[in-house]
Design a protein around this nucleic acid. Structure first.
Ligand SMILES: [Mn+2]
Ligand SMILES: [Mn+2]
Ligand SMILES: [Mn+2]
Ligand SMILES: [Mn+2]
Lengths: 160, 160
DNA sequence: GAAATAATATAGCTAAGGCTATTTTTCAAT
DNA sequence: ATTGAAAAATAGCCTTAGCTATATTATTTC
């Protein structure tokens, strides 16, 4: 078997198709570039819902990073149009920010629930979902949702 | 409900426990710091098995990055003890490198197979697994394996 | 309203991970 | 043995994401 005559993946020994592999790596690098933005926007939305305001110190404390780190990222979020900031006032989401936050929150929730549904403990599901969510494509999310719906209905059928 | 009286997650409205959340974010940041190392070592192992040698140009071509990018990362892999390099000769894995490669390859395979098993297309499974694998904990991998074993045996039971 | 406190901003550093352009070295062919 | 091509190394640049230390600005409190 040469390096060039297999299109799918070859579990045992060979390499997968080079074009396919480079596509995967590129997509993964792309996802990595937006992970932090997504986590910030989702967290800001949660803080706003819960307490009415999102301050840098709260964000920093919840992320486990220093306040200047947050300050810098907020500038990026502003430049990308997801938030507005009034100096020494709080952080507010733009329409685009709210849209992104909603998407991320739903995606996060699906991934975390799914992990729980296959028997992962809530603590581990929480941790793993925080990283995995950013790499779950719409197609994978649909599969997760199908699975959740199926197990939910079979639970109902089984126990009334 | 205040910000401080919920220990688990609260799907609908509130924030999860701050200590729990910071633990998730920290673990995710940790995983991110080793993602690339894992992908490199896994890829090098595959290239060595397939062609007997792993050259910078091959690695660069498969990852979709420039050759100097690979050269720099290889220095990191050397400094972390995963590979050896003979100037203008190829790349070789150390014992630690081989161990890491084996772990990563198995983990990657489990994640990709699992995604396929719940109905994700092979192409999407390939792409999503490339990113998700690095955030799948041992506990989650066990759950994936259990699921794979269960569906495999139920296939056998169903169709003979 | 002045002082103390809290929040934010800023300066300046590091490391990782990317790039292009160029030089050096090795390998293959003639 | 020389040359030409390929591979690797190096130089120099950028962005992101973290840090500490310090300055500035708001907000409370007295
Ligand atoms: Mn999230
Ligand atoms: Mn996340
Ligand atoms: Mn991999
Ligand atoms: Mn990967």
């Amino acid at each position: 078997m040469t390096q060039h005559d297999n299109v799918g993946h070859d579990v045992e020994t060979g390499l997968i198709d080079a074009d396919a592999q480079v596509e995967s790596f590129r997509q993964t690098r792309n996802n990595r570039r937006t992970e932090l933005v997504e986590d910030y926007v989702e967290l800001i939305a949660d803080l706003l819902v819960d307490g009415g305001e999102a301050r840098q110190v709260d964000i920093a404390q919840r992320l486990g990073v220093a306040q200047p780190t947050v300050a810098k990222m907020l500038k990026r979020l502003i430049s990308e149009g997801y938030i507005q900031q009034r100096r020494y006032r709080g952080i507010f989401l733009t329409d685009a920010g709210r849209r992104l936050a909603d998407l991320c929150r739903e995606r996060h929730q699906i991934v975390e629930s799914f992990l729980c549904s296959i028997g992962v403990s809530p603590e581990t599901a929480r941790i793993d979902a925080e990283g995995m969510e950013h790499h779950a494509s719409p197609e994978t999310l649909e599969a997760f949702k199908r699975f959740l719906a199926r197990t939910a209905s079979s639970r109902i059928a089984a126990q009334g």
